[in-house]
Nucleic acid binder design. Structure first.
Length: 321
DNA sequence: ACAATTTGACCCCC
DNA sequence: GGGGGTCAAATTGT
C-alpha cells in the first residue's frame, strides 16, 4: 500500500494519516486485529472474556487480604470466595474462554495503547529470552474492567544492533471502563513530557543499555523531536506510537513508522518520570508505568505534527506498507 | 501514607 | 509434572 502525500487539504491528509497510523483504540473501537501469534495460532478479534480465577492462596506463608485493591479487580471478586471445590469447573471454562479472545500486536513501544495498565505479574517464559509481564486495566478494580494484556520482548531487535527492541503485546478481554477515564485523549501518546517540563541535561535519564552502550530503547529510538522543522518550533517527542496490524499480511511496528517518517534516534529528553519508565521498559524487569496520555503543555498534537509534515518540505513523501 | 511494582508461591490446564 | 497465569505480601516509589 502506498500513500502519496501531496499538497492536498490538511483535513484529508490528516484523515489519511490517522487512518494509517492511528488505529482508534486497542480494545474498544479498533478494528479487530487478526494476527498469527508466536505460537502460530491465529488470533481472532478481541471478544469479551474474563479471567475468573478466584481463589485464596493455599498454604501460603502470606495471609489473605480481602480488602486489598487487587482482590477486587474483577468486580465480581468483592463477592465471597467460593469454595475451591465448587469453582473448579468454572475456572476451567473461564480460562478456556480467556484464551479465545485475544488480539496481539508487535510494537516497539508497548506502553502506547491509550490505556492505563497495572502490572500484576511477571514471569520468565520457557524458551523466551525475556520475561513476560502481565498487566490489567487500572480500572479493573473500580469498574471491573476485565481487560488484560501481556507484554513480552521479542528475541530480535534491540540487542545493540541498532534496531529497537520489539515487544509482542497480547490483549485479552475488552475494556469496559468508561471512555473518559482511559481514552479521553487521542491515541497518540505524547510522552513529550519533555514539553511539560523542560528537562535540563542533568536530569535527563536517557534510556541506555545496561552496559552503557548506545541506547536502543523502545521509545527512544522512535522519538520524533525537534528534528524538524522549518518552523523552529520544538515539537514534542512522539515517542509512543503503536501500529496495529490490520491485516494478515504482517505486523507494523513503531520503528516502521519512524523509518517512514524519516525519524532518527533523536531522543527527546522526556520528563524524568517518563524517561525512567521508558528506561525501565527496556528489559521489562523494572517498574513499568504506563505513561498514558500526557497532554502536552503547548497543546501540540499529532495533528500538528502531521500538518507540519505536510506543510513543510519534509523528506518523507509517501508511505509504503 | 498511599499507590504501584516486585516477586515467589500457588493454581490450573495440557 | 511442567508451563503459564495469577495472587498477594513485601518492597519501592511518590
Amino acid at each position: 500500500m502506498t500513500l502519496l502525500i501531496g499538497r492536498q487539504g490538511d483535513d484529508e491528509l490528516l484523515a489519511q494519516l490517522r487512518e494509517l497510523l492511528l488505529p482508534p483504540s486497542p480494545m474498544t473501537t479498533m478494528t479487530p486485529v487478526v494476527k498469527v501469534d508466536q505460537s502460530g495460532v491465529i488470533i481472532g478479534p478481541p471478544a469479551s472474556s474474563r479471567d475468573g480465577r478466584r481463589r485464596r492462596r493455599r498454604g501460603s506463608k502470606r495471609g489473605g487480604r480481602d480488602d486489598d485493591s487487587m482482590s477486587s479487580y474483577n468486580g465480581e471478586q468483592q463477592h465471597e470466595e467460593p469454595p475451591r471445590h465448587s469453582c473448579k469447573t468454572r475456572k476451567m471454562k473461564q480460562r478456556q474462554k480467556k484464551m479465545s479472545s485475544t488480539s496481539s500486536l508487535v510494537t516497539s513501544v508497548p506502553d502506547f495503547d491509550g490505556y492505563q495498565w497495572r502490572k500484576y505479574g511477571q514471569k520468565q517464559i520457557e524458551g523466551a529470552m525475556y520475561a513476560r509481564s502481565y498487566y490489567r486495566c487500572t480500572r479493573s478494580a473500580e469498574q471491573g474492567c476485565p481487560a488484560k494484556r501481556t507484554v513480552q520482548r521479542n528475541h530480535d531487535g534491540g540487542d545493540g544492533d541498532g534496531t529497537p527492541p520489539k515487544y509482542t503485546v497480547v490483549y485479552m478481554g475488552e475494556h469496559t471502563c468508561t471512555a473518559n477515564d482511559s481514552m479521553e485523549a487521542p491515541v497518540i501518546l505524547e510522552t513529550a513530557a519533555a514539553v511539560v517540563a523542560p528537562v535540563t541535561s542533568t536530569s535527563i535519564k536517557r534510556p541506555q543499555n545496561h552496559d552503557g552502550t548506545a541506547p536502543t530503547t523502545s521509545a527512544g529510538s522512535c522519538s520524533i523531536t525537534s528534528t524538524s522543522t522549518a518552523t523552529g518550533i520544538e515539537s514534542p517527542a512522539i515517542s509512543d506510537i503503536t501500529y496495529w496490524s490490520s491485516s494478515s499480511s504482517g505486523d507494523y511496528a513503531v520503528d516502521d513508522y519512524c523509518r517512514l517518517f524519516g525519524v532518527h534516534d533523536s531522543w527527546a529528553p522526556p520528563a524524568t518520570a517518563a524517561a525512567s519508565s521508558l528506561q525501565e521498559m527496556e528489559d521489562f524487569t523494572g517498574p513499568i508505568r504506563s505513561p498514558v496520555h500526557i497532554a502536552t503543555a503547548d497543546g501540540w498534537t499529532i495533528d500538528h505534527f502531521l500538518l507540519q509534515l505536510a506543510s513543510n518540505d519534509q523528506p518523507v513523501s509517501h508511505f509504503s506498507f
